[in-house]
């Protein structure tokens, strides 16, 4: 019952957010220049252009156009890419697996590195290793992701020749999905982009986990757990870590969205055939339907990840479980 109420409320919120995103995305259309310039050549007369505009509905009032767009969007039609002459949704979804796998790999790196590193820096703040990690994290947080990407290509691909410098390598087709996880070449191509993408978030998470952990270690309940004679390991991982992760999950959910935004830079530098790279190309070609479709799909990913994060948070924090019923 409480889960159902929670779900209904969340879905309602998600619909509202998507409506706003679609409105903003759609209103971009009028600000990117005349779509006809991209569609037809110079030689087409003004009368013919006007007729075409009429036929495409470009002369209708804004909200009529928007309503028509929404109606189509609900049925899975986000318009047709001017450049590819294919449905925009199809073009983007074709690129989705590449971006998804890149973000997933970066997220895994972030989680697997930042949790142990953050805990270590919190419980041994004076250790030389902890000081080193904290120092490096300042450096990491200050270097823009495209610089990290370019530098890692220079060092590992050009100078050392250890890693491929661009592309996704061999991929395996699994129905509509294609994955680079299943081939050695695919995995090799994934390493540099994933590290470059994670480099921007990793220092942030290490510092966040360290700060939260230090705070939690000072609380009365940790003292009480120690006074009960529990093993230090249990105090750390059961009593302290779960409370540390509550705020980390909240911030993490938002940051996964930001990570998708950073894929635009990473994918461009590494020529990674994903949505971000496609988006930058679409901007260069003023491929309006593709740009709008990208904005809407990324918005949808944001909404879905945030909902999942909320559900995880509800599971970890018993206090939200109750207020979820009352609220």
């Amino acid at each position: 019952m409480e889960t159902l109420a929670f779900l209904i409320r969340r879905v309602g919120q998600a619909v509202m957010v998507m409506l706003i995103i679609s409105l903003i995305g759609f209103s971009i259309q009028d600000n990117l220049g005349d779509p006809l310039r991209e569609l037809v050549g110079q030689s087409v007369s003004e009368a013919e252009r006007e007729a075409l505009r009429d036929r495409m509905g470009l002369n209708d009032p804004f909200f009529v156009q928007y309503a028509r767009f929404l109606g189509n969007a609900v049925q899975g039609d986000l318009g047709t890419s001017y450049f590819f002459k294919k449905p925009a949704l199809e073009v983007i979804l074709r690129k989705f697996p590449a971006t998804f796998e890149l973000v997933l790999a970066a997220t895994l790196i972030i989680v697997l590195v930042s949790v142990p590193a953050g805990i270590f820096c919190a419980i041994k703040p004076k250790h030389i290793g902890a000081r080193l990690i904290m120092g490096l994290s300042i450096v990491g947080i200050s270097i823009p992701v495209f610089l990290t990407a370019i530098f890692s290509i220079y060092l590992f691909s050009i100078e050392l020749g250890w890693m491929p410098s661009f592309g996704r390598g061999d991929v395996v087709e699994l129905g509509w999905w294609n994955t680079g996880f299943l081939t050695g070449d695919g995995l090799e191509h994934l390493v540099l982009p994933a590290f470059a993408l994670s480099s921007i978030m990793l220092p942030l998470f290490i510092r966040l986990i360290r700060g939260e952990m230090m705070e939690v270690m000072r609380t009365e309940y940790v003292r009480f757990a120690q006074a009960k004679g529990l093993h230090p390991r249990r105090v750390l991982f059961v009593h302290a870590l779960r409370n540390t992760l509550l705020p980390v999950i909240t911030v993490g959910g938002v940051q996964i969205g930001t990570l998708i935004a950073y894929t635009i830079l990473t994918e461009t530098v590494f020529q990674w055939p994903g949505m971000g790279f496609l988006f930058l190309e679409a901007v260069n070609r003023v491929d309006t339907p593709l740009i709008i479709a990208y904005i809407i799909i990324v918005g949808l990913i944001f909404v879905i990840t945030n909902t999942i994060v909320d559900l995880i948070y509800t599971y970890v924090n018993p206090m939200v479980r109750i207020s979820g019923v009352k609220g």
């Binding site: 009480f224 006074a227 009960k228 409370n243 970890v316």
Partner: peptide, 18 residues
């Protein structure tokens, strides 16, 4: 906890919320 136990001041803070 076994031979010497302790009771703290604020029961709102002493028990782990999760």
């Amino acid at each position: 906890g076994d031979r010497i136990a302790m009771i703290f001041q604020d029961p709102m803070m002493t028990l782990n919320p999760v």
